[in-house]
Nucleic acid binder design. Structure first.
Length: 716
DNA sequence: GAAAGCGTGTTTTTT
DNA sequence: ACACGCTTTC
């Protein structure tokens, strides 16, 4: 036993050991990028178990994303050689969901409550707006959605909001929030924020349950703590109570989700919030070269509000960072491609990272032209696809007839002759009588309110759902999925859309049946496979990457790159206004942009290329931007530049007025030419130069840019 | 009920 | 420039 335990510390560095073997008190691990954070988390859990300080059921491990949760679970099993039973690990939402499924009665939910994803939520809000007769120009659905979610994340129910001093918009939206809450309760629907809020209230208001879980979860480990929002932190505090131990892992320098409610203060003030906090910094980096780390440190050190940390490595210095000043976005893309080709090796060792997803298009086009395989991360995910959501909506109705969002989705899809008029009538009756739409239809048929073709169609629809429900009892889940798809005529429905599209949709539906197989054995644990599948679909929308497995160049936004690493990274679009993004500058969020840059830089193991364009199309207009300030924040001894050989022309401190029409210029890329046109406005001067075979617009000066792109050879 | 026209916004995205 | 969502039109 002794040996087992000490072997857990073998191969860890001093700081990691200190973290893993920390005494039982609150612990804050400031884990720099690439410093072995997951390793520490996993070893800490193993340490607690193997030293006998904790039994598995007393441990709760919380992560943010399903990816992190999966990795954590996998590595715990790997390290221990088995999966500890009774240990709870998962995402905030996953764990909240689990609690609500167990305590649905105490949480005042129907046993078969369903989860509303963001898309369902938005649709529900649209319908509510319409029902309230509100103009969706004045009350944009997305804004209303944001308002509601924000309230919930602040822990506020509609009735708790103070309307003192509120304007009419706020009053109106608060009313909408109230009717949204009522609708969800009526239909037994729970959105993402509700999962957390409902669990929070459940434990807060139910002493018996609260004490039970506080006594159970002695050890609470939290990953990516810098990403927690207000409610998530309150939720943790509630479960931790006065006597349990919080083991918090995070990195304030990698907080990049402030815009969606993450509170960097949560981690920054944690040592002040609790007494007896042991703080451990993991600063030794096992990922990147010293050059890359120095650049990362230099940039992030410009941020004022940090707990402070400096990455180091005992590895090699590595190559200098390479800065490329492209002429435009196509040049930028081609440069990246040429470097990937020159480097050779696997394509998947290369990642192209950008600030905004719009930047991917030009790069994608260049990759296609170069016939280089690539994969773009982001975009539509498996369970978000229309055909999947259609099929799932039928199943949701089977599981829970009162699910109005599912009802609305499939009441006339595929077309079954139930028009908007009829659906509206159902909505009105449901609202007036406080019923779900399914119940309303029942009543309306019995009372003979509905007649003719609508009646037949509605009866057929009811029968359809009941037929599906009967089969649910008889079939394995995967067979049931196939049955639902077939019986609901979904194939024929999509076939109308054109051949290739239909083919893809049908393949996805087959894949859904495939995925269902994985839930069939849940029945042995006393769980209902269908409920499990539906929850999974909402909580884990699936991967958003295309053809996995192939050797591809990887394209993604900087945000999506967090937590990943690549041998070679291309950071592109490093331009003022794009990165840092203008909106962030306007809102005074420069520090978060800088953290994003830090995240991007620290993704690279060996080579890092930083690109900026002198000009690019933005919003349909050619735009000229100065290089990003982040480039200037990297010490020049760490960088090489393609313009390194460009002589600086002393005579032209402001090249703006040093050039005239007719001047002969030498340009490093295009050779010799003559200035034939000139325009300059504000900070910029551009000239059109006629080269041997083409004319090019070039930038001669930026207001704050020392580098010039062309030098004057002679005057004429 | 589909196609065409119009107006508008356009950072980042997980659960 | 371009994509979207909504309205108009046939």
């Amino acid at each position: 036993m002794e040996d087992d335990v000490s072997s857990l510390l073998d191969g860890l560095n001093t700081a990691q050991r200190e973290a893993v073997a920390a005494p039982l008190t609150h612990v804050l691990i400031l884990a720099g990028a690439g410093s072995g954070k997951t390793r520490v988390l996993v070893h800490r859990i193993a340490w607690l178990l193997q030293t006998g300080q904790a039994l598995a059921p007393t441990i709760l491990a919380v992560t943010f994303t399903n990816r992190a949760a999966g990795e954590l679970r996998g590595r715990i099993s790997e390290l221990l050689g088995h999966t500890p039973s009774g240990l709870w690990s998962g995402t905030f939402h996953g764990i909240a969901h689990r609690l609500l499924r167990i305590h649905w009665r105490e949480a005042q939910l129907p046993e078969s409550f369903q989860i509303l994803d963001s898309d369902d939520q938005l649709r529900a809000i649209r319908r509510l707006l319409k029902a309230s007769g509100l103009d969706d120009k004045t009350y944009p659905p997305r804004q209303v959605q944001h308002f509601i979610n924000q309230c919930k994340e602040q822990g506020n129910r509609a009735h708790q909001l103070s309307l003192a001093g509120a304007n009419s918009w706020q009053i109106q939206v608060t009313e909408l929030y109230a009717s949204y809450e009522q609708m969800c309760q009526q239909s037994g629907l729970v959105d993402f924020a509700e999962l957390l809020l409902r669990t929070y209230e459940l434990l807060r208001d139910n002493e018996e349950l609260r004490v039970h879980y506080q006594n159970r979860f002695r050890h609470i480990l939290v990953d990516e703590f810098q990403d927690t929002n207000f409610l998530q932190y309150e939720w943790l505090k509630l479960i931790a109570g006065q006597h349990n131990y919080l083991f918090i892992v995070g990195d304030d320098d990698q907080s990049i989700y402030g815009w969606r409610g993450a509170r960097i203060e949560n981690i920054q003030s944690f040592p002040k919030q609790y007494q007896n906090v042991i703080m451990v910094r993991l600063e030794q980096n096992y990922r990147s070269t010293a050059m890359i780390l120095k650049a990362a440190n230099a940039i992030i050190s410009r941020n004022e509000h940090r707990l402070g940390k400096e990455l180091w490595t005992d590895g090699a210095d590595g190559d200098p960072l390479f800065i490329y000043s492209a002429y435009n976005e196509e040049d930028e893309a081609n440069f990246i491609i040429s470097k990937i080709q020159a480097a050779g090796g696997a394509y998947q060792d290369n990642a192209i990272l950008y600030r905004t997803s719009a930047q991917s298009r030009v790069i994608e086009e260049a990759l296609i032209k170069a016939q280089m395989p690539y994969r773009i991360f982001g975009g539509m995910r498996f369970y978000e696809r229309a055909e999947i959501k259609d099929a799932l909506a039928f199943m949701r109705l089977v599981a829970h007839r009162d699910d109005d969002t599912a009802f609305e989705r499939v009441i006339n899809t595929p077309k079954r002759g139930i028009g908007e008029r009829t659906v509206e009538n159902i909505r009105v009756v449901a609202r007036q009588q406080g019923l779900s739409m399914w119940q309303a239809v029942n009543g309306m048929i019995q009372n003979g309110v509905i007649k003719g073709r609508s009646l037949n169609s509605l009866v057929a629809f009811q029968k359809h759902i009941e037929t599906l429900a009967e089969q649910r009892e008889r079939l394995f889940l995967s067979q049931f999925v196939e049955f639902v798809v077939k019986e609901s005529n979904l194939h024929a429905h999509y076939q109308k859309e054109g051949k290739e599209e239909a083919q893809r949709r049908i393949e996805n539906l087959d894949e859904l049946a495939n995925a269902a197989v994985g839930f069939e054995d849940r029945a042995q644990e006393g769980l209902d496979p269908l409920t499990e599948l539906l929850a999974h679909a909402a909580l884990e929308a699936g991967t958003n990457q295309g053809s996995a497995g192939e050797d591809c160049v990887q394209l993604m936004t900087l945000h999506l790159a967090k937590g990943l690493e690549f041998k070679r990274v291309f950071l592109c679009g490093l331009e003022e206004g794009l990165f840092p993004h203008q909106n962030s500058l306007d809102e005074g969020n420069l520090e978060e942009e800088r953290r994003l840059c830090y995240v991007g830089i620290t993704r690279a193991r060996e080579q890092l290329y930083l690109c900026h364009c002198e000009t690019r199309y933005r919003y349909g207009q050619r735009d000229f931007s100065a290089p990003s300030r982040f480039l200037n924040e990297i010490p020049s001894e760490l960088t090489d530049s393609v313009r390194l050989n460009t002589p600086k022309v002393k005579a032209h401190t402001g090249a703006r007025d040093g050039f005239q029409l007719g001047d002969r210029v030498l340009h490093e890329k295009y050779g010799e030419g003559v200035i034939v046109d000139q325009e300059g406005q504000g900070e910029f001067t551009r000239v059109q130069v006629a080269f041997a075979d083409q004319a090019k617009w070039l930038i001669l000066s930026y207001a704050r840019m020392e580098r010039i792109t062309a030098i004057k050879l002679s005057q004429r």
